[in-house]
Each structure stands twice: as C-alpha cells, then as structure tokens.
C-alpha cells in the first residue's frame, strides 16, 4: 500500500488476473469514506468476472487501522457461511492475509446495491419511519442466529467453545483489547470486568454473532435491507451478544427505537420467532453491560491508533472523548444491577 492507489491497482490487477486465469484491467476505482477500520474501495472489472459479477468491493485491513493487525479470514468465512441464506450479504470471492499480494490482508466481494445511513446524523431520520426495515432488521438477525455454522468455514474459530464458556471467552477477548489499547489506566473497566466474570450466563445456543449489528452497518434500497456489512467483529457466541449491541443507547439517536428501527419488544418477539429462543432478561442485562465495555474498548482503540499507529484521522481522538460517557453508562448499569 506504500505506493498509493496506482500501486494498489497494479497489484490488484495482477492478482485477479492470476485468479481468473485471463488478463484483467480494473477501472473506476473509488474509495468509500465510511468506516473507521478497514479501507473500502469500489472497482470494476470487465466480464466475465467472479460468477459473472464485475462490480466489486475490495476491503483492505491497513497495518495502522483501528484493530490492526488484521486477518481477512473471519469476514470471508462469515460471508461464505451466509451465502444463499436468508441473511443478505455481499458474496465473497477471494481473500488473503498474505501482505505480499496487496500490502495488507484483504478480501474481494460483490458490490451490493443500496446506501448506508450514519446513525448519529440527526438530520437523516425519515426513510426508516414505516417500520418495515426494522422488522427486516430483526428477522435477519434471527435468521443469522438460527444458522447452522458447524459445517461452514467459521467452525474452525469455534474450537473449545461451549455454551458454558461463551460469555467468559467474549470477556477475555475484549479484556485483551482493553489492555492493548488503553492509553491510560481505567479503574471502571476493571470493576466492570470483575462484574462480568461473576455474572457470565450460559448461552442458549452457539450462533454466528455479527459483532457490530446496528444501524449504519447495512445497505438499504427502496425501503429494504439489501446487504449486511462490516463483519470484521464476527465471532461465534451467545446470540444475546448481538441483541445487546444493537440495543445500545448510542444507536437509538434519541428515539425509543433500537438502532432507530424497531421497538425493543418487537425486536425480541421477531428474534424469538426466528430462533425459537426466548430472550433471557439476565442475559440481556449481561450483554448490555458487556456491549458498553466493548464500546469503551473500541473508543480506546481510537486513542491508541492515533497515538501509537500513526493513524492521523481526527475521528480517532474524537472517538476517545466518548470513553467517559460510556464509562458513566456502565456505572449506572452496575448501580441498577446491585
């Protein structure tokens, strides 16, 4: 990636030429501004493309990105796992973690139609007011959590995972993130970690967990969700984890709707209808607190990327200013739990 877009274009063309077994010259490169982590490019190749698809998206995990170092494998395997199911997502065609190919881990997928919505834009509320997208949002999540992943490529990430240890593993993973990224000690994080370890629930099922399921991480067109995006935090675990995350106050935009899309009761009811799993209040409480801890750690990753990875994007220290408000939410949540 050191040679900029011309270098990336040449490397991409060479690699796709090798994959397709014919000379390929890409065109129409466009970098999308959204996202804090992976770099996303739109690119066209002439027919025949991958399964006939010629409009592609290339996602690169830069070495100075928010959660770097990256692997493209989980995202690629997740996209393959949901292909052909009721979970709409871009079809993925190629991936590699070999940095000699494009300079960073990457995957190539089809470009899905639609636009994303920025969750914190208070001036953009109207398209989701009729409830249809909210119902689809809930149904897709239920479909994802009901999928049998055991015969997919994601299964290799589930070694040793049980319904009993799923919560503890999730806490371990984000504790490691906190310890990697915190630019100063945060006593509240230690208090929350201790609480989570003492209250870890048993998962009702081991599911594919998207990890960042919310408004802003899907494409919509004509009032319908066309693709679920941003699978970089995908994991196997308790389905309550995604519910807790998508219900965070940060994504409600000042409304009573989860992710500004659907009431909590309807989200739970539709999820239960798809999965056959009643939403457990104790698990939701645990994963709400877990999600806030995770969000605080993500904000810490922003401060860390700015200070230590040379990621000079002003969104990073701006994210870091939100650590204290999230820790205050955690304080209130723990007070409510006692």
């Amino acid at each position: 990636m050191s040679g900029g877009l011309p270098d990336l274009t040449a490397r991409f063309d060479a690699h796709v030429t090798k994959l397709l077994g014919r000379p390929v010259t890409s065109r129409g490169w466009k970098q999308y501004p959204s996202g804090f982590s992976w770099s996303t490019y739109g690119v066209s190749i002439e027919a025949p493309g991958f399964d006939g698809v010629t409009e592609l998206v290339l996602r690169l995990g830069p070495p100075n990105g928010l959660f770097a170092p990256y692997s493209a494998a989980p995202q690629f395997e997740a996209l393959k796992a949901v292909e052909g199911t009721a979970v709409p997502a871009p079809r993925a065609f190629a991936w590699s973690d070999d940095e000699s190919i494009l300079g960073a881990p990457f995957f190539v997928a089809e470009k899905s139609p639609g636009v994303t919505v920025i969750p914190w834009d208070a001036d953009d509320r109207s398209p989701r007011s009729d409830g249809a997208i909210g119902q689809q949002f809930a149904d897709i999540l239920g479909e994802l959590h009901a999928l049998d992943w055991t015969r997919t490529g994601l299964a290799r990430f589930g070694e040793g995972l049980t319904r009993q240890n799923a919560a503890a593993r999730a806490v371990d993973e984000w504790e490691r993130g906190y310890r990697r990224w915190a630019t100063r000690p945060h006593p509240m994080m230690h208090k929350v970690l201790a609480w989570l370890r003492a209250h870890a629930p048993v998962a009702p099922r081991l599911s594919i967990v998207h990890g960042d399921y919310r408004l802003g991480n899907f494409l919509e067109q004509d009032g319908r969700i066309t693709a679920i995006l941003d699978w970089e935090l995908v994991r196997l675990g308790d389905p309550h984890e995604d519910l807790g995350w998508s219900c965070l106050p940060q994504y409600r935009g000042g409304t009573e709707l989860m992710s500004q899309l659907i009431s909590r009761d309807e989200l739970y009811a539709r999820h239960e209808a798809k999965t056959g799993l009643p939403v457990q209040p104790e698990s939701m409480h645990f994963y709400t607190i877990f999600s806030l801890l995770k969000l605080a750690a993500v904000h810490m990753a922003g401060a860390h990327a700015f200070e230590h990875k040379g990621f000079f994007d002003m969104r990073m220290p701006a994210m870091a200013t939100q650590i204290a408000p999230v820790l205050r939410q955690l304080e209130k949540a723990l007070e409510a739990a006692s």
Binding site: T183, R184, H299, M300, A303, F306, E307, F312, M316, P317, A320, T321, I323
Partner: peptide, 11 residues
C-alpha cells in the same frame, strides 16, 4: 482526556 497532550498535538 485519553490522549496525552503532546501526542494529541503531534497527531
């Protein structure tokens, strides 16, 4: 604040 002052200025 969570960034150190001099590193924030450098960034």
């Amino acid at each position: 604040m969570n960034n150190s002052f001099p590193r924030l200025i450098d960034g």
